[in-house]
Amino acid sequence: MKRLKKRNILSIKSLIMMFFVFSGAFYLYVINATAIQGYKIREKENKITNLQKENETLEIKKAELTSLYRIEEEVKNKGMEKIEEIVYLNDKKAIAYRK
């Protein structure tokens, strides 16, 4: 009987010890996982911020390219001229042109 009791006590102690060991391990795992998730969330947030910044950069580029003063300068640099008059050819009449 005494031996049986002793054995039982030892098993209980082992169980309790295993419980604490596993709990500890589980706790470590959960903390770790939480921290990793936190960093992953931050990473996504950073990605969103970077994409927003990239979007803003493109908007600025678009505004620069469509700036009327800049276009005017480009027109001058390329030697383009303003069209004073547009003449539409009438396709119903005969048209002769030089090759």
């Binding site: 600025i60 505004a63 620069e64 700036s67 009327l68 003063y69 800049r70």
Partner: peptide, 8 residues
């Protein structure tokens, strides 16, 4: 601050 329209 940036002004893409320049002197506009």
């Amino acid at each position: 601050r940036y002004y893409p329209g320049q002197q506009l």
